[in-house]
């Protein structure tokens, strides 16, 4: 089989098998899978609120997916999107709460977003620097940095910034709130989907150009594919390790901005809910391709929100199993696909 067909077939197969396994589990839990899927479909794509929810989740997932996919072009496995997301979220909330209320909205939003991206990028760069300077494996470094990020944000929240008797920080100023589609245009009624979704599509497109159409990307992919040859070709592989990690972290930070500035308007403990890890599956399903990522994030967005809507029939725990199994299947199939190639 040629590799092009394989690239389409493998994700498709993994989705189909995930569907089959989920049906089985739902049936075992004593429900009719067809009914459940119908309900999910209706709740996600059938109503404008539900669709807005999917778009909102998809946006974060695209961004954390990019956080994994960009370093992956240099064959770096960034497991740390979750930590980068946390740092970005905290930075966005802090900046948003401290800015003067008189600042023009565009400026305030930009400043908050920028601080989120910087925080995410710095956090990822730490792992990059450890790799370049001391040869520390990036998988281990990013996992550890996830724990540290959890610790830092948790400590800062509970000991310094939480509003008494809550688990969240002060609300950000009104001028740093990213408008929802609802407030801006009346679409997607009441849903958290906000204008950062548009920015995200643009960013994915830009990154696609950067990776596949620019000289920078040409060097970057070469450094990932054959590091030794890249050295002969005068390519600075260390620089690409750092920039790809930096860009990845910045994307996670942008994802945090979507949640904090577009929806929650403050930092709350546990608000990221492991989305950073789902990003790994999103990136793998899309073969780390920035444009396919949109599709794969949409799928996982549907799954995530759809799972919530059928809570009344299927316990949350069962749905957690289904989601995790789907991710596992995706990862296994993409590994298998590699071998077949």
């Amino acid at each position: 089989m040629n590799s092009k067909n394989l690239r389409i077939l493998v994700p498709l197969l993994s989705l189909l098998s995930a569907l089959a396994v989920s049906s089985l589990i739902i049936a075992l839990a004593g429900r009719d899978p067809l009914m459940i899927f119908q309900k999910m479909l209706h709740a996600t794509l059938g109503t404008s609120y539900g669709f807005g929810q999917v778009i909102f989740r998809m946006t974060t997932l695209v961004l954390v997916g990019l956080a994994v996919a960009i370093p992956f072009q240099v064959r770096l496995f960034n497991i740390g999107a979750e930590g980068q997301l946390l740092m970005g979220a905290f930075a966005a909330a802090m900046t948003g709460a401290m800015l003067p209320a008189t600042l023009p909205s565009l400026l305030a939003i930009s400043l908050c977003t920028l601080s989120a991206m910087t925080a995410g990028a710095c956090w990822a760069l730490l792992a990059g620097v450890l790799k370049v300077r001391f040869g520390v494996n990036e998988v281990i470094a990013t996992i550890m940095l996830n724990f540290i990020a959890q610790g830092i944000t948790g400590y800062l929240l509970t000991w310094h910034f939480a509003i008494p008797s809550t688990v969240h920080t002060a609300k950000i100023t009104d001028n740093s709130i990213i408008p929802t589609f609802d407030s801006a245009t009346g679409w997607l009624t009441n849903s958290p989907a906000n204008l950062s979704s548009l920015v995200t599509v643009g960013v994915a497109l830009l990154l696609w150009i950067l990776i596949f159409r620019s000289r920078f990307g040409y060097e970057m992919r070469a450094a990932g594919l054959q590091p030794e040859a890249a050295r002969y070709g005068g390519i600075n592989a260390k620089m690409h390790t750092l920039t790809s990690m930096g860009i990845g972290g910045a994307m996670a930070g942008l994802g945090a901005a979507n949640i904090v500035l577009g929806y929650k308007h403050y930092y709350e403990s546990g608000m990221t809910g492991g989305t950073g890890f789902t990003g790994i599956a999103v990136a793998l399903l899309a073969g780390a391709h920035p444009l396919w990522l949109l599709l794969s994030a949409f799928f996982f967005g549907c799954l995530e929100y759809g799972g919530l809507t059928v809570n009344a029939w299927i316990p949350k725990d069962i749905f957690m199993i289904i989601e995790a199994l789907t991710i596992l299947l995706v990862i296994s199939f993409s590994a298998l696909g590699k071998r077949l190639q």
């Binding site: 070469a222 594919l225 030794e228 040859a229 002969y232 070709g233 005068g234």
Partner: peptide
């Protein structure tokens, strides 16, 4: 050392001279 096997022939004719 001299080529990127996954790159196309055209891209390889450029490699190091890009």
């Amino acid at each position: 050392h001299a080529v990127i096997l996954e790159y196309t022939i055209a891209e390889n004719l450029l490699f190091g001279r890009h």
